[in-house]
Design a binder for these strands. Sequence first.
DNA 1: GCATGATCATGC
DNA 2: GCATGATCATGC
Length: 465
Amino acid sequence: MNVAFDQTDPKSIESYAKKLEGKSLRGTLLNKGVPVSVVNDRDRGNFGSLLERHYFELPVNNESVPDFTRAGVELKATPVKRLKNGNLVSKERLVFGMIDFMKIHKEEFETSAFLSKNALVLLVFYLHEQKVNVLDYIVQLARLWGIPETDLPIIKNDWEKIVTKVRKGKAHEIMSGDTLYLEACTKAANNKARRPQPFSDETAKPRALALKARYMSELFRQLSEKKKWESPDVEPIVKSIREYSSGKTFENIVIERFRPFLGLPVSEIRKKLGLALESKQKDEFAWVARAILGVKTKHIEEFEKAGVVMKTIQLKKSGMPKEDMSFPIFRYNEIINEKWDIAENNDTEIEAELKQHLEQRFFFVVFRCEDVCKKPEERILEKVMFWNMPEQDLEDHARKVWEETIKRINTGKAHQLTKKSEDPVVHVRPHAKNGADTIPTPKNGMLVKKCFWLDKKYIQKQVRS
DNA sequence: GCATGATCATGC
DNA sequence: GCATGATCATGC
């Protein structure tokens, strides 16, 4: 029997967990009298189960009830990692239970297995570091957490999108990119595993419900912030949950904000919004879009949490985008070590950055030039849409070009990467300050910085549909 | 007119 | 100093 905390009281459990903040498991467990042999030998490689068994001394529990059964609290340990700029972000998504396709279609969100098990979660964030023993990871933060009221409508809608696909016999078409905060991520020992679904003969990849890594990062940032009011330049679009009344989804709300402005020239939109009549900013269209959304900051809270990337697109009179769409530059010496598919809980493999970018959900804000594209104020706001890259394009184009890029860099052909004429969707082009803005390559010395681009003809097709 | 390579402007 | 979003310039 554990006397360190009250098994029935969530607050008591949280206080006990908070004692770990700033500490690692090694010393804590040894102080608790857990034998060295046990600490060292069991559950190596899994921080969560060490925590569960030896710190909280919970019985092994794979049932549909929360780990701290009497308090109704579910325990979740989750890693953060340090970026090159020093910021801490979530290392991975927070995975809840597997989706049982044969059962979930009968559930309602409010009484779902997901919600009943995870109504109250004890989150333990620890800092994962390469080549450091799991016993020496430092706990950053331990906090009781429940889905906040403001996030509930989005999470509910995410859950319903996933379940709707199951009900339509389309479990095999579920993608992480379908949803905003909660996703149905693939979860299987190997890539070939498939499970049956109730309304189709097609089998589907096994999937689990999870909060996206981006959501977890934003959550971690908010929880670690000592002074909320000094919060950085992030503002939500939806200021009151009353806006979700009558079954409106977040995406409905966003699109409705734009409706009064569709078909108007930028000058008119500026006037209506009370903005300065002209801007010399290169991202002036993005600022107009944010103003329409009612956000005064550079970052949008819901978009940050969901990993939605807003892109403004300028169409010529013909409907063809003026430009291809660029992504961040890659480093020749680093991209060659990336993997497209990485095994779960794998600390050594690095997932392809291109894949991470293209799997995000996009929000396109499309402007069109009436005549010549000279004056920005005369461009018309044509349409807005959420978009994901279809899985087939990811596989057949993005992945292929990425593989080819690595192959050429490795064979001394880093100066001749996939041209626009070689692939209709993704190509590689310079993206540098000038010709002298170079970085090292494995076999070709210093070369100009380059990045992947999405072809404007491809963008046009996507925007038109 | 378009592919390709190159560069600008701004903010952090 | 560098990333990022946005474009320009040239030659076929």
